[in-house]
Computed example of a mutant assay.
Amino acid sequence: MATPKFIAPSNSFYAELKSRTNAYFAEAGAHPTGNYKLYIKAAVLMASMVFLYTHLVFFTPPIWLALIECILIGGVTAAIGFNVMHDGGHGSFSKKKWVNELAGLSLNMLGANIHMWTTKHNIIHHTYTNIDGVDDDLDARPFLRLCENQQYLKIHRYQHFYFWGAYSMLYLYWIFFTDYVKYFTQKVGDIPIKKMTRKDHLSFWGFKVVHFILFVIVPIYTVGFLPWLLGFLLYGMFTGLVLSIVFQLAHTVEHAHFPIPTVETNRIEDEWALHQLKTTASFATKNKLVSWLTGGLNFQIEHHLFPKISHVHYPAISKIIKEACAEFGVAYHEYPKTRTAILSHIAHLRQLALQPVLVQR
């Protein structure tokens, strides 16, 4: 489908949010990008990745410890994606462009590709959130039905039971399949990817080869094929599960909307900021550990409204956004704990599993 348009009201709610947020940074004397806390966290995560990889591959720990370390390295991989790559990809990790690009390249070292991700995430997902047929994050077909407008298959009646398994395959499916589909079609769904330069092509293939050597060839040589296969699957599946759960708690929960553009005008009857608030939910925002590990993606509303602001500032600007929502009578969807958000996601999947009727455009 063609990308829809949003209404542009004369008195923009988003303009008021930006004004208040800019005033906060001016008064605090702070810059919207990352600070020393983020850089220390990035260093800790990167050092943890190097240590775990080195110990697993070259020091061959006992099987029980190796399995634990495979899970840990999966968690660290997801955390680097949330904290380092994500801010870097949005240009909010640092004031310096080259530092942001370097942070974004951490995704390439982990097997995926920042060029593909930028189109899929920054451009498509952040603009057309939860619009079926445009937002590629909603496309988990045929395994999962994530909104009412998607086709119902018999397998979906059990999706609220087996989704854990489907989510665990996300990372492996991403780095070994969907990246290549995007590369060779030069599209994310039906939307063209920004034209790749020679540097982009070299980066894509160069990092894919490096990742394959580091995470496949070298471990097989040092520990053997079957131990590697067991460890790599455990690592990859745990990474995928963590990534998927955090992503899904932001947009596929009970209170999230899945707007359908009007047929005649192909327009969403909301301004962009209101659309983001209707389609997005935050969770566990008072849990400092969750915030630290997920790179502030539990403050998903703040991130969608201000993606170029580093996540280290989300707790502060969250108060501003909540106050503005209360004044303007705009709903702010938030789940107090991670488990309540997970239960809401399961309830959402269960509802779609029992509701085979399609919404007509």
Rank of each mutant, 00 (worst) to 15 (best):
V218I: 15
G206E: 04
K308D: 06
W117V: 01
I68V: 15
I193M: 01
V359C: 05
V359H: 07
N130D: 09
V312W: 06
L170D: 00
H333A: 06
F299P: 04
D200A: 13
N22L: 10
V134F: 12
D136F: 02
E16H: 11
Y314K: 14
N149H: 10
I217Y: 09
W228P: 02
K96N: 13
R350A: 09
R339I: 14
I220P: 03
A28Y: 05
R267C: 12
D136K: 09
V218D: 03
T21V: 15
L214G: 06
M237A: 01
T239I: 08
G296E: 07
R20H: 11
A23E: 10
L72M: 13
I175T: 02
V357E: 15
I245L: 15
L72E: 01
H345E: 06
N149Q: 14
F225T: 02
G104V: 01
Y39P: 00
T285L: 10
I114E: 09
K308L: 08
F161W: 14
V188R: 01
F283R: 07
Q150F: 12
A2C: 07
A79S: 15
A30Q: 10
C147E: 11
S94T: 00
I73S: 04
L56K: 05
G206W: 06
I124F: 01
A43I: 02
R267G: 00
W164M: 12
A26D: 13
A273C: 07
E254F: 07
Y183C: 00
I217W: 11
V359L: 13
I40Q: 04
V330M: 04
F247E: 05
V253T: 14
F207G: 02
N266M: 13
K120A: 05
F177W: 11
V330D: 00
L229H: 04
A353G: 13
K208N: 07
F143R: 11
E334V: 06
T280M: 14
